[in-house]
Amino acid sequence: MRFEEQILMELKAEMTARAERRHRTRRRLFTGAAVAGLAAVTAIAVPLLTGSEQPAYAVAENADGTINVQLNEFRDADKLERDLERLKVPADITYLKSGKSCEGNRGKIVGGASPEEWEGSASDKAVRLRPGKGLTIDPRHVGTGQTLVMAFTERNDGAAEAAKPAVQWQLAAYVVEGQVKPCVVVDDPLWDDADRPGEPSPAGS
């Protein structure tokens, strides 16, 4: 084999390996924590009630200082941010349609740029999902000058259709140091059928 051919083959192999690593990272973001239900980013499907007379969300402070949030509808994000601010949690909340994401890096993420580096950091510990019952925020992991960034993405797949009137969502959450850049909504290039959950979670009570 000529030297040029060998270099070309090595380059192709490296490009393929990088693509596979990106896909594995993405899959880990969306499904890696689904088994335990504990992670900063996960895709556990949590029913979001629509067409009801309930408030858009409910917030409750627990005795240990943590905060439970139950979403009922994708609205009033600004008001939820204000309610969390009163509970000492600066938050940036975005509701996204299925197949959408926020473009690029929105700030300096606590724990590192990659979710693989977040383990044990504030970005890993600030939010815990309660399957079927929303999520729990721990203010102790959102320090001075930091903001909890949460992007809720609607799931529009067969499982969500079967669960109507519930709409299901996935959550991406992390802590940003300093200023948070606005969410520029774009098509998610890595969104495909393989990333979608197979079954809905039980409805929250």
Rank of each mutant, 00 (worst) to 15 (best):
Val142Ile: 09
Val186His: 01
Leu11Thr: 11
Gly204Met: 07
Lys79Ile: 09
Ser123His: 06
Ser205His: 12
Pro189Leu: 02
Arg27Lys: 14
Arg28Glu: 15
Glu20Thr: 11
Ser52Asn: 05
Pro90Gln: 00
Pro200Asn: 03
Glu177His: 08
Glu61Gly: 07
Ala56Arg: 00
Phe3Met: 12
Leu71Gln: 01
Pro55Lys: 00
Leu48Gly: 04
Ile109Cys: 04
Gln168Lys: 14
Thr147Pro: 03
Gly120His: 05
Arg130Gly: 08
Pro200Ser: 03
Gln70Cys: 10
Pro139His: 04
Leu96Val: 00
Tyr95Gly: 00
Thr136Ser: 07
Gln168Gly: 15
Glu53Lys: 10
Ala173Val: 00
Leu8Lys: 14
Gly120Asp: 13
Ala45Thr: 03
Cys183Lys: 02
Ala33Arg: 10
Asp92Lys: 02
Pro90Thr: 02
Val176Gln: 05
Glu85Asn: 13
Asn68Trp: 10
Val142Phe: 01
Gly145Glu: 06
Ser123Leu: 04
Leu48Pro: 02
Arg196Ile: 09
Asp64Phe: 01
Glu177Leu: 06
Gln70Thr: 15
Leu8Thr: 11
Ser123Tyr: 08
Ala113Glu: 11
Val176Tyr: 03
Ala58Cys: 12
Val69Cys: 02
Ala122Gln: 08
His141Thr: 08
Glu61Phe: 02
Ala17Tyr: 05
Asn72Trp: 03
Lys125Asp: 10
Ser201Pro: 06
Pro182Asp: 02
Gln168Asn: 15
Leu96Pro: 00
Gly99Lys: 05
Pro182Phe: 04
Ile109Leu: 07
Asn68Ile: 10
Arg82Val: 12
Glu4Trp: 13
Asp193Leu: 12
Ala45Lys: 04
Ala159Ser: 03
Glu177Cys: 06
Glu10Ile: 15
Leu87Met: 09
Tyr174Gly: 07
Val41Tyr: 07
Gln170Thr: 09
Glu5Arg: 12
Arg28Asp: 15
Leu29Glu: 15
Tyr95Lys: 00
Gln54Arg: 12
Ala113Ser: 11
Asn72Gly: 07
Asp76Glu: 07
Ala91Arg: 04
Asp78Cys: 07
Val127Leu: 13
Gly51His: 05
Leu84Met: 01
Gly120Asn: 09
Ala126Asp: 04
Ala172Trp: 07
